[in-house]
Design a binder for these strands. Structure first.
Lengths: 160, 160
DNA sequence: GTTGATTTTGGAATAAATTGGATTATATTG
DNA sequence: CAATATAATCCAATTTATTCCAAAATCAAC
């Protein structure tokens, strides 16, 4: 069955915890035993990936550590991903606690309604309003692309 | 489980000591028994690396010593890392004392709130304001990159 | 070299916050 | 409409943070 898909409303409780939808719990348990990585995205949402997926995303070059000693740029790369990632395990009740440092940038304070979205390789937790804007943005982008494609198809047309 | 990640507020006590977050204590104990190296970064923060990581970082080429005799640059390199690094061991209570010489350059005097950040290969202790600036910088950079990617996706559109 | 004062370090106690489990309520399915 | 599954709430247990104190070490003066 297709994993990591769909949208669900979730509640962030008074302690910054949330209960994952049953379907997603299954998906995360199936891939990596419920060990996940939370990653706070620049877009202002929190991504959840099975640990293996995140490692694949971050697999580093052999001499990365050595470079870190000599390069500010390299350190910044480590810094960005280190600062905005956090390992966790889904509890027996399917719950997850959002790291305190992620709540404000993601606009997900305790006691709010939020949305969790399947993203094929994992899931993302969004502030409700931000999710609406993101949908809008994606929609516009696709439509614009459609227009461009149509125009280009015409250009390539020659009288038969 | 993913090591050296996340952000935590910490307090530098009246004696220049701090207590590491439990998660980081575990990470440092797992890698090298709590033996660490503090390194005062040019960015103005204090990096903490497991001793093994620091050695890998400073792993010197065979002829490095000979070069030191010939090159001012090389000598400066040794000098910088020598002067700004310091071995330490995490205490039974998970505490660490900042070297007095590091406190001013890192803007971490006794009695201040600070931030400790996981950086994948270790951790960094930052003055709160400096960390905000660093975050801002990284965030802007990422968002700009995102915009450019979106624009290029449109430009490059062609019937597939 | 010895004594006294001061700083530093390690440990323990207390207070606060977090976590996990259980229970109750609500919704969904057949 | 009953049975099951899911959601929400509450409370106890544990963990973590903070403060305080005593021992040790360092330094200074005599």
């Amino acid at each position: 069955m297709l994993a990591f898909c769909g949208q669900d409303r979730i509640l962030i409780d008074a302690n910054g915890r949330l209960k994952l939808p049953p379907k997603l719990i299954e998906d995360f348990l199936a891939e990596g035993d419920g060990d996940i990585v939370m990653y706070c995205l620049p877009e202002g949402a929190i991504a959840l990936y099975p640990e293996a997926v995140f490692h694949e995303m971050r697999n580093r070059a052999e001499d990365a550590v050595r470079e870190a000693g000599m390069s500010i740029l390299k350190r910044r790369d480590f810094r960005r991903f280190g600062a905005w990632s956090c390992a966790a395990k889904i509890t027996t009740q399917g719950r997850l606690t959002l790291p305190t440092g992620f709540r404000e940038p993601a606009a997900l304070p305790p006691g709010t309604d939020a949305i969790i979205v399947g993203v094929e390789i994992g899931a993302e937790i969004w502030n409700w309003n931000r999710w609406q804007s993101e949908l809008e943005l994606m929609q516009q982008h696709e439509l614009t692309r459609g227009d461009i494609e149509m125009a280009q198809a015409l250009k390539g047309t020659s009288p038969q």
